[in-house]
Nucleic acid binder design. Structure first.
Lengths: 251, 251
DNA sequence: AGGAGCTTGTGAACGTGAGAACAAAATCGA
DNA sequence: TCGATTTTGTTCTCACGTTCACAAGCTCCT
């Protein structure tokens, strides 16, 4: 007996308070747009206004917002301050999240230097590196500390978000240590695929991948005919020399 | 091979050589995985092996690769070098793309310093900034040049990709100048929505948005009850003070 | 009060993507 | 040569995301 897989009318199946991932990814954009409007002294905005400011179409914006609740007024629009607060609360930036940055190379430096970490809601509690020459260096109002302190810091300061800006090599080990110590969200800039246990969220930022995606489209634009010849059979020898493609920005 | 092109039964409608965007975004990941295998001396790999290395499931990987052609051998797997070359060619990194970086703040510095730009296939032809104190500074083997030279450089060196690492303010103007000069792909690190004419591709990298997405999920994990109280009606006054959320990493 | 004019919120249609499952094709051993 | 085994390429189905289109609801004007 099949467990009655009823052909339901493919209901949206929006589980209680479950917001689609694609919508979650756009909420920060809306938040930024609202902040800009607010700073510009705008008190009320229609979905059309907001959509323009956020660079999406208005139907999508309205549907996205509808997952949060009914915070608009028909015939009028959205109160900018009120909606801003609702989105900030939904995202979770009304509270502070403790963050550590591991790997203070060029990129780690840049992130550490960024005043206020760009966005309130996040507080850098430590900069960590394995290089003894870097440990002790002052960056802004913070000092680079030894990676040996990782576990202590994560536990003491209840760090939930870790940013990995190490080279590819040590990234997985750093990741493991962060997770073991209690970090449950990771933002990875190292050009490797990190594996983490279930329950840990991971996001990846990768410059070289972004460039390659642009290159693909660029190649399309500059005429199909410009494509290099394709060897139809695995000649194996005679492939053009292909230098180490696939690296990435790590540190 | 696709035999008859049936139109009615809502065929996947894979237009000639048109690769789904989701697949395009994964090709660079496969490329990197293949490079790693190649460096490790592996000559042949199954879809299962590759999928593991790339962090996807094998059915998806096989389907992705099938859009490029039939480059595997049933019962055997894929020849690592051959497939690597095919993907590199499809992406377009077998040729060199000229790139300019505009805005040499912390982040621009970090990108400029990155040796070889992380990935072959891309060649930084200029670092530009508006700050006279920065112009002339030596970074690696390059010198920061005045942004006034933007148009000349883009035209002379046939630059097709521009990287914007300025603060939010000047980003749109820089973008406009790049596009007018002939750039058709833009990678934007500034925390603003840039508008570009049709035909210009744009991709965005935004640290603060990534962090906010992590924060959302983090908030979910730490118990629903921890959500701040929700003012049910637009009280308008009495909203908790919300500092300038929505900024981003710009420079 | 009542209608005109806007704008939200949402149901439905459509398109894209993911994953399971399997037929087709290659190798290997007897 | 034939069958067993392996692994690709593809088909089918379901889930997710986007967009359209419009009823519901609000304000303003007469």
């Amino acid at each position: 007996m099949t467990p009655a897989r009823s052909r339901r009318p493919s209901a949206p199946t929006r589980t209680e308070r479950g917001i689609p991932e694609a919508t979650v990814a756009r909420l920060p954009v809306y938040l930024r747009a609202l902040t800009a409007l607010s700073d510009g002294g705008i008190a009320t905005a229609s979905s059309e206004d907001l959509a323009t400011a956020a660079g999406v179409n208005s139907a999508k914006l309205r549907k996205d917002l509808s997952y949060l609740g009914s915070y608009g007024t028909r015939g009028v629009g959205y109160d900018v301050e009120y909606l801003r607060y609702q989105i900030a609360r939904e995202i979770g930036v009304t509270q502070d999240w403790a963050v550590v940055i591991v790997g203070i190379g060029n990129l780690g430096h840049a992130l550490a230097n960024y005043s206020g970490f760009g966005t309130r809601g996040f507080r850098i509690v430590a900069l960590l590196d394995a290089d003894p020459d870097l440990v002790g260096e002052q960056i802004g109002d913070m000092e680079v500390r030894d990676i040996a302190e990782l576990e202590d810091i994560v536990k003491t300061d209840r760090v939930s978000i870790g940013v990995i800006t190490t080279p590819a090599g040590p990234a997985q080990e750093v990741c493991d240590r962060l997770v073991t110590a209690g970090v449950t969200s990771i933002l990875n800039f190292a050009p490797v695929v990190l594996s983490v246990p279930a329950g840990v969220d991971i996001r990846k930022v990768d410059l070289s991948i972004e460039l390659q995606i642009l290159a693909y489209h660029e190649q399309r634009k500059s005429g199909e005919a410009a494509l290099p010849p394709v060897p139809e059979l695995p000649t194996m020898n005679g492939l053009p020399d292909l230098p180490s493609v696939g690296g990435g920005v790590g540190a």
